[in-house]
């Protein structure tokens, strides 16, 4: 083995200029990066962290190789930020469920304005809201790290991959794949409304490991059999309104066919 010398690209890599920003969201996804306590210092060696306003005081706002954005577009300010970051970065990454699907905040799109308007928006005149939407409704997204919150190890995998200049490895396999490997009992069999079969995995089925059914936070798989999933839940005794609301909670905007399937019921 000692003959081995310098496999891979012969390069003296310049560290990638990375920015991590948050728009409307809970900041939990940015926390997920920081939760990699044991590896965070090594991580900072891998890339040149130019901006991370969540934990840094001085932050660049342009000339990024990669920009990572948490949160969804819910205000005019968000929109301006996302567009500016897109202009100033070679690659833009959507971090977390809000950025990827709109997640819970986008649920506003499925309720009547009268139901929520008086609670906040009439009081806060300065807040110029826009329809809550995922980032990719406005700018091109190069890579998605989904999840509410995202898996912290997946974030590490992402950084090590880009630092070496290779494509990060995501998964589009349903949650069930990891869930069965973990030896869990199937929650659908126990009558719980688990969305694992139509939801992209990569989370190691963390919710089901803990006894909670999958709510679909990582968004639908490309290969999902949505109609069958709905049929299964109906047969288990859930009504259409419940099924529709459950499916919309995390990924409503990525399941536009729900409207048609439920036909405006409920």
């Amino acid at each position: 083995m000692s003959r081995a010398k310098n496999p891979g690209k012969p390069r003296q890599p310049k560290k990638l200029r990375v920015g991590i920003y948050g728009i409307t969201g809970c900041a939990g996804c940015q926390l997920s990066i920081i939760f990699n306590e044991d590896d965070i210092l090594d991580l900072l060696d891998l890339v040149d962290l130019q901006a991370f306003p969540f934990i840094k005081e001085v932050n660049a706002d342009q000339h990024f190789d990669w920009v990572i954005v948490e949160g969804l577009v819910a205000s005019e300010q968000d929109l301006a930020t996302v567009k500016k970051l897109r202009r100033n970065a070679k690659y833009l990454v959507s971090l977390g469920a809000c950025a990827a699907t709109g997640c819970v905040p986008a649920y506003r799109q499925f309720t009547l304005k009268e139901n929520y308007e008086h609670l906040l928006y009439r009081k806060q005149k300065r807040l110029k809201d826009v329809e809550p939407t995922p980032i990719d409704a406005h700018v091109k997204v190069d890579y998605y790290i989904p999840g509410c919150p995202p898996d912290k190890k997946e974030i590490l995998g992402f950084f090590t991959a880009i630092a070496r200049g290779i494509e990060p490895r995501g998964t589009d396999n349903p949650v069930c794949v990891e869930c069965r490997k973990n030896g869990n009992a199937c929650l659908l069999d126990q009558g719980k409304p688990c969305l694992g079969p139509i939801t992209a995995g990569g989370c190691h089925a963390v919710c089901i490991n803990g006894g909670l059914e999958c709510w679909g936070c990582r968004g639908p798989t490309k290969d999902m059999n949505l109609n069958l999933m709905i049929d299964i839940l109906r047969k288990k005794g859930f009504d259409d309104r419940f099924i529709r609301d459950r499916m919309r909670t995390f990924a409503g905007l990525k399941l536009p066919t729900l409207n048609r399937i439920f036909h405006g019921k409920g």
Partner: peptide, 17 residues
């Protein structure tokens, strides 16, 4: 793909497995 793009960086004298 990932591997083939990286292989493109190999040059005379390098090691490959």
């Amino acid at each position: 793909g990932r591997v083939t793009r990286e292989l493109a960086g190999l040059r005379k004298g390098d090691t490959v497995f």
